[in-house]
């Protein structure tokens, strides 16, 4: 047996120690990286996740093979924006015994019925909830659609505004077959808005109406140029600011620049839910 000096032995042991530590740290690093990747891909919260028990107990899961629970909030613009898709599900589900539709609705319980009627939504069960109570269970936002089996176990989940691909995924999970064109042509959740131009605004003012032009673009775009007298409320601030800064009796003229699409729908729905009924859209894409 060859002789090994004490210093070489110590060095060798040190090397083995360092390599072991390196392997452990690499494993730890890779694990943390993978968890982070998974999290960023799915954004699924902790208890609102596939494989976990659904955190609200008072729902009877045995009434159907599976239940689609949709968590909505009355002040949430994306929730209103997704309403046509929920209607499509409601109208096309093959069998209630197979899939029940339940909504957990945040906001004022007294306004729940009016809110759902306004969106023309009909569910098998509506349960007012405090979203604050659901947050500890990992609910990060609304809308959230959760598919739960007859044992109360979450089998799938979708959060936020749904892309066409995600909508197809939801329909597949519910075994609902609709023409793909139907998804592309989902109707707006709000009635069509009347257009108005500057002459029309002037005419309303002359008739004694108070007209408020609300510029929904971000502050940078608004600062660059805007219609004289227009009030800047970026779309993501509208839910909070509208009831504080706008008058229900006024004619509200919305302006969202060159990329209006969903912005007008979301803004109109949000304002409409808060009692603003005299809504128009400015007939120009440039201020």
């Amino acid at each position: 047996m060859p002789e090994i000096s004490v210093s070489k032995l110590v060095l060798r042991l040190l090397n083995i120690g360092i390599i072991t530590l390196a392997i452990l740290l690499t494993g730890l690093g890779v694990r943390r990286y993978r968890v982070a990747q998974l999290t960023s891909r799915s954004q699924l919260p902790a208890y609102f996740k596939a494989g976990a028990r659904f955190p609200v107990n008072e729902l009877d899961w045995t009434k159907s093979f599976q239940t689609l629970v949709i968590v909505l909030e009355q002040s949430c613009a994306i929730c209103s924006d997704n309403a046509p898709f929920y209607r499509l599900i409601e109208q096309n589900r093959p069998d209630r015994g197979r899939t029940r539709l339940v909504v957990l609705l945040g906001g004022d319980p007294d306004k729940a019925t009016a809110y759902l009627e306004n969106l023309q939504l009909s569910f098998d069960q509506v349960k007012p909830v405090s979203l604050r109570d659901l947050k500890p269970y990992g609910l990060v936002g609304t809308p959230t659609a959760v598919l739960v089996n007859d044992e109360g176990i979450v089998t799938n989940m979708w959060s936020g505004s749904l892309t066409e691909l995600q909508q197809s995924e939801v329909l597949r999970a519910l075994q609902i077959r609709v023409d793909s064109a139907a998804l592309k042509t989902l109707p707006s959740s709000t009635p069509p808005l009347d257009l108005i131009d500057e002459t029309g605004i002037q005419r309303l003012k002359e008739a004694g109406e108070t007209v408020m032009v609300v510029d929904l673009r971000d502050r940078g775009e608004y600062s660059a140029s805007h219609l004289a007298g227009a009030k800047n409320i970026p779309i993501d601030e509208l839910a909070v600011r509208a009831v504080n800064e706008l008058q229900i009796s006024d004619v509200i003229v919305l302006f969202a620049g060159e990329t209006p699409g969903k912005t007008y729908t979301a803004a109109a729905q949000m304002l409409s839910n808060n009692g603003f009924k005299r809504l128009r859209v400015l007939k120009t894409s440039k201020p």
């Binding site: 360092i18 740290l25 690499t26 690093g29 943390r32 982070a36 999290t39």
Partner: peptide, 18 residues
């Protein structure tokens, strides 16, 4: 190797700051 592992941990930790 130890340094590489340390850096990977730092990077992974950075990823979690979502």
């Amino acid at each position: 190797l130890l340094l590489i592992c340390f850096l990977s941990c730092v990077l992974a930790a950075g990823q979690t700051a979502k």
